[in-house]
Computed example of a mutant assay.
Amino acid sequence: MKQLLLIVTAIMMLLAGCGTNETKKPADQPKTEESIREQVTVQITKNNGKEKITEKKVEITDETTVMDVMKENFEIKTEYEDSFITSIEGIEGSQKDKTSWFISVNGEEAMKGAKEITLKPGDSVEFDLHPYE
């Protein structure tokens, strides 16, 4: 009888040690440094950065373009088959005032259109409305 009691006690201790380890779902887990780097920062400004309109951190995937980010995260208007952004968040450039939206990526003025610039994690994109003359 003593042996049976010892065996039962040993089995119960083993089972208690094998309790379930609850794991968090990926959505519940805190963001890792790697997942944070899968983002870009987009800043919308006016007058060469003097007036900040908004700033967002936006998640990207491979082959995400500036135009993709803008269409998915901001209210924009475009011309010339999505080659030229004319309005962001209701703010438009003006021929009368000779103002237009200019794009910079990582501090360098873009020499391509928004749909031709592919972003990498950690990039910083700025759209600034200022005079073109």
Rank of each mutant, 00 (worst) to 15 (best):
T20H: 05
N21C: 11
P26W: 14
S94Y: 07
I7L: 03
L129P: 08
P30F: 11
E34V: 08
V58M: 09
S87P: 10
Q95M: 13
I60D: 04
E108G: 02
E38W: 03
E92T: 10
S124M: 13
G122W: 08
I36Q: 12
E109Y: 13
T65D: 01
G49W: 07
E116L: 06
V125P: 03
Q3S: 01
K52L: 15
S83F: 03
T64W: 04
V66G: 03
P30Q: 10
Y80N: 14
L5F: 13
E51K: 13
L14F: 15
I44M: 09
S83A: 05
G49Q: 04
G90L: 06
E63N: 14
E55W: 15
T54I: 09
E89A: 07
I85W: 05
G49H: 12
I36Y: 14
G17R: 08
E72G: 11
S100L: 01
K112I: 01
G93V: 00
Y132N: 12
A16C: 09
N21E: 05
I88A: 04
Q95N: 12
A16H: 07
D68M: 08
P131G: 10
K77G: 13
Q29R: 12
K46P: 05
L129V: 11
K25W: 02
A27D: 15
T99R: 00
K31I: 12
E133W: 06
E109K: 09
Q3M: 02
M70V: 11
V8A: 10
E63G: 02
K115L: 06
